[in-house]
């Protein structure tokens, strides 16, 4: 009886206040969509970080026949220099930091390049000799890359030492920026959603002041009088959360599944499971924001 009665009251309230209900649903949906996007960006950054931390390498390119680096003044790297580098990689000073390392010959570099840029004009006219020899070093903890980079930089026979982390910085910066943008945007919209819920509840309370007045007089409890209004706000916000979730699934499918995965294969990407993981946060947020804002509004505008 009670449940049916309250559900009926909520339905009537939402319907009578239709345009306000729709606006609450839309604003909540958009704000939660951006909030969810922020969370998904976060997860994407985490995934890339985890992936690159496991795969990050330091590439030590050796001097070829032609190079204008000061460390290559002596011409192409010699066998002695290579032996010295290998000895250092195995030596007591560096070995605690190094997980594995291997030597990549010109031929291996060429083969890898051909595979990576297959069909590209870059491959045509490229000869094996144009690619440098290199050492590829994988660290125990990628945070320690500075040590190894500093150790070999500028050494005779070593043209350049690259930390792959630097290459990814651009990507990280972009993702972090996008995440902050999404969150600031979400925060502004969430504030609007909270105020809109408050206004909607206030209107609903005003529209039904006759009913609530009678409820009060016949001794309905405060909770029972306020419950339908709170539920109205919460139901509208939850509808918004549902739309936001659908939006996030669609966005991940189109942007990640349809665009990024086909073009940039260097890292793993977030998928539907990640959307599923952030969804509960959106729903809880919707309930809490709508609940709290309607509760505060009811304290002020609904006498019980």
């Amino acid at each position: 009886m009670r449940i049916a009665f309250v559900a009926n009251e909520v339905g009537i309230g939402l319907w009578r206040n239709f345009s306000m209900t729709v606006s609450v649903v839309i604003v909540t949906a958009v704000s939660l969509f951006f909030f969810g996007s922020g969370l998904l960006f976060q997860r994407q950054v985490d995934q890339i970080e985890e992936f690159t931390y496991n795969n990050i390498q330091i590439s030590m390119f050796l001097c070829g026949a032609v190079s204008d680096q000061p460390s290559c003044a002596g011409g192409e790297v010699t066998q002695e220099q290579k032996s010295a580098i290998e000895a250092d990689l195995e030596g007591p000073e560096l070995s605690p930091f190094i997980e594995t390392w291997f030597f990549e010959s010109k031929q291996q570099a060429y083969d890898r390049f051909v595979v990576q840029f297959e069909g590209s004009a870059l491959v045509e006219g490229l000869t094996v000799d144009q690619l440098p020899e290199s050492y590829r070093v994988q660290l125990v903890d990628p945070q320690d890359s500075e040590v190894v980079v500093a150790y070999f930089s500028g050494r005779a026979g070593v043209e350049e030492v690259n930390d792959q982390r630097n290459l990814l910085d651009g990507l990280f910066n972009f993702l972090n920026g996008a995440r902050w943008f999404a969150w600031v945007f979400a925060l502004a919209l969430l504030s609007a959603a909270v105020l809109l819920v408050a206004t909607t509840i206030r209107l609903a309370a005003f529209n039904r002041r006759r009913e609530t007045g009678i409820m009060r007089l016949v001794g309905a409890s405060k909770f029972f009088i306020q419950l339908p209004f709170m539920l109205e706000g919460i139901v509208a916000a939850l509808l918004g959360a549902v739309l936001a979730t659908i939006g996030l699934f669609a966005a991940v499918r189109v942007i990640v599944g349809g665009y990024l995965q086909g073009r940039l294969t260097v890292t793993p990407y977030i998928g539907p499971l990640d959307v599923l993981a952030v969804t509960p946060v959106l729903f809880v947020l919707a309930i809490v924001l709508a609940g709290v804002s309607s509760l505060i509004t009811l304290q002020r505008y609904l006498k019980v």
């Binding site: 009886m1 009670r2 009665f5 009913e211 009678i214 409820m215 016949v218 309905a220 409890s221 029972f224």
Partner: peptide, 9 residues
């Protein structure tokens, strides 16, 4: 209504 809102069955 007066009975519903005080939870009478």
């Amino acid at each position: 209504f007066a009975l519903q809102v005080i939870g009478k069955p």
